[in-house]
Design a binder for these strands. Structure first.
Lengths: 340, 340
DNA sequence: CAGGGCCATGTTAGCGCTATCATTCGTGTC
DNA sequence: GACACGAATGATAGCGCTAACATGGCCCTG
């Protein structure tokens, strides 16, 4: 007990501010966190002192002591996708206003990586978590249950949500856009289904496509799965090849807008008239769908709204409120353009 | 000192693991963080105990005690932009592999908000920071200098970087793509410059456009500034209106690919032949630029590479290494397609 | 003017982890 | 067999903050 004891980090702490303001450290803490608890004079003294010494609070210490962090985790599938970009932007907009910071991870559509990220986020003692999708490992569910952290799942609906869900009816939307093909006279349909990692949304959408066909008795000429990621042109080329290998296809449903746009572009390049020879519909409505003539008929997702609502819901839950309906179902829109 | 003292969070701690493994807490800490410091038998006992009780380390406490976090901050301008999406994805890929977590914020192109985010990130004691752009407030620079945290700036070059920069020559790239217009015979040029918040990259690009015109003696018919964000079609409509208000414009340079694509689409809709009547070039090469016929002649940014290199550079610096050249200049590419 | 209540501030003891010594024990050396 | 030495483990004291209780002064009531 003689040697040099541990030394501080050299940064300015609450105690330094307290010394300058000539009050106790806890008063500084109160003046900064809940100003209404100290007198106006004290508050001003503290604020001046903090500014003078350039105090930057240590939120790690604060969170440790109070067992309450102002950080939320967001597990995305990927960040280089414009649709998720809208969602995460909306999410961050709302959280930022409420004074939360965002820890972000990308699972690459792999449930195992999602689990690792969740573990990591929990060890950072996040106050809440947002997960894209409803496909999770058993281990992830167990950890989340044990931690008791508010969780919101995004982009889908769930029969048995972990905690809360904010999404839309992917199956119903797929069905609606397929019905559009059928209404305009298509009788031999093809579905192009994107395939990537453990993602299951495209299967849900495929089910909606099949619903529409079954309900109307229209023939499904074939279904093709396209491993992602792929460039728009490449997806389109594969799909067009597939269509040509079949007989008399007159309508194509794609589970995302990139495959749909690719198909459109390749058809045009090959002299196939869209929608007269082949009609095309997709799902998803970023600007690319509207820009390529004659414009893609597709589903507009409530992408921004998902992020916005999810953040609001999570904030409510983190504030301790409970919900009767932990599931929010948002609306999609059918956007009619030239391809169907 | 009689009443109920403060109680723990109820979660499982190092001490719980230590009790089960029948070793001291510090041994558990060592077994988990630096396994080579304990005997194989102990390590296994500890690992088994940790798994058995479902231990999730508290990184806040760890970071506080060691004054070293494994979290990095990333201040983007916006997250709903496909180009930044690539950069951030690359950044996170590399950092994740190195065991870092990412705290993300969006400045909305406002330097003041960037400063607030930096302050927030510093209070979370990030081990490093990435900032998009080189436009920062004086206050932000002061804080960063005081904190002594490794910082990497992205997407531009800087004469006097805060710490490190990874970017490319925006001015040179703009000049090159403008020269393409001139080479193919354009003699009356228009520049469309995007305008958003405190962002300065488009001004740098405009300077490159002027360089090319001055160097070759070609006339600049006019320059128009377009407040962002705007839909592709709307930008295009404004630019086309502007062009028509001038005489004999035969070449258009846009500081981003969205304005360029919009101009292309509107020209086609108006029966103006591209590139025969008017040639168009943009900057930025996401898929949208390649999909709309006849394809946009543009600059491909090293977007993924910026994120990748920035992360690697930051990791090196956080590990304590110094650099002779804290500035990394990456290459852009001129992509020739149909519009010029 | 005694007593109660409230507001502002202070004291003390952690939150869960790790830095920094301190100790123990086995091994090799002469 | 005494000693040096390194490997493995432990004891102690914080990191910077806040929860929980304690205190002191002021105002109001009757």
């Amino acid at each position: 007990m003689t040697g040099r004891r541990r030394q501080g980090t050299g940064r300015i702490t609450l105690d330094d501010v307290a010394r300058v303001a000539e009050v106790s450290p806890i008063t500084v803490s109160r003046a900064l966190r809940s100003p209404e608890k100290v007198s106006a004079a004290t508050r001003e003294r503290v604020e001046r002192a903090a500014a003078k010494v350039g105090y930057v609070p240590n939120r790690l210490a604060g969170a440790l002591a109070s067992n309450a962090s102002r950080v939320v985790g967001f597990v995305a599938a990927t960040l280089n996708n414009s649709i998720f970009g809208e969602t995460i932007q909306a999410f961050i907009d709302v959280l930022d206003d409420a004074g939360f910071q965002l820890l972000v991870g990308a699972s690459g559509y792999q449930a195992e990586r999602e689990e690792a990220l969740i573990r990591e986020f929990l060890s950072h003692r996040v106050a809440g978590l947002a997960l894209v999708g409803t496909t999770h490992t058993a281990g992830a569910r167990r950890m989340l249950a044990a931690a008791g952290v508010p969780v919101v799942e995004l982009w889908e609906l769930a029969d048995r949500p972990i905690d809360m869900v904010v999404g839309f009816d992917n199956r119903g939307a797929a069905r609606a856009v397929t019905e559009r093909l059928i209404e305009r006279g298509c009788r031999r349909l093809v579905a192009a289904v994107s395939l990537i990692g453990d993602e299951r949304r495209s299967e849900t959408r495929l089910a909606g496509f099949r619903d529409a066909a079954a309900e109307t008795g229209v023939a499904i000429a074939g279904e093709i799965r396209i491993e992602q990621p792929l460039l728009i042109n490449e997806s389109g080329a594969r799909i067009l090849d597939y269509i040509r290998s079949l007989d008399g296809v007159d309508g194509v449903f794609c589970t995302n807008e990139f495959m749909a746009t690719g198909t459109l572009v390749r058809c045009q390049a090959a002299g196939i008239r869209v929608p007269d020879d082949i009609a095309i519909v997709g799902m998803g409505d970023t600007q690319i769908a509207s820009v390529v003539p004659p414009g893609l008929t597709t589903i507009r997702f409530p992408d921004y709204e998902i992020g916005h609502t999810a953040a609001e819901t999570l904030i409510e839950r983190m504030a301790g409120r409970d919900f009767d309906t932990p599931s929010v179902r948002l609306d999609w829109n059918l956007v009619l353009r030239g391809t169907a």
